[in-house]
């Protein structure tokens, strides 16, 4: 029991470190899209680990924590997707180092009259 709770606490600490790394990436990354991916991916993993660690410490809390985890898994990617789509639509350019931009390619294809419907 004691070891399980210490393991849970360590997992929580690792999760909070991931949250920290996510926001460090938010500060350090060169352009918006990199910031989006570092911010949401790392912080999703961090939140999941934090909640999972607490579920290990208190097993009888795990019902609500599982709901919370499922919820975070559904909402976070959607919100990052919506932000990046909106940013791309309103014409924020990529950084100079990035090599591929598939979404604008797709958009160009859709504007052509004979484009294949997906």
């Amino acid at each position: 029991m004691e070891t399980l709770s210490i393991i849970g606490a360590c997992i929580t600490l690792i999760g909070s470190l991931f949250l920290f790394l996510g926001s460090l990436g938010l500060v350090r990354m060169p352009d918006l899209y990199n910031r989006i991916q570092s911010g949401t991916k790392a912080s999703t993993l961090g939140t999941l680990l934090t909640l999972f660690g607490i579920a290990l410490i208190y097993p009888n809390w795990s019902g609500k924590l599982v709901i919370l985890i499922v919820f975070v898994i559904i909402t976070n990617p959607v919100s990052s997707h919506v932000i990046s789509r909106a940013a791309h639509r309103s014409g924020i350019s990529l950084s100079k180092n990035s090599v591929q931009d598939d979404l604008s390619h797709d958009n160009q294809q859709q504007q052509e009259p004979n484009a294949i419907k997906p």
């Binding site: 999760g15 912080s43 909640l51």
Partner: peptide
């Protein structure tokens, strides 16, 4: 977004 996600933890 990142602030609120961290707030959940």
């Amino acid at each position: 977004d990142v602030m609120t996600i961290s707030s959940i933890g």
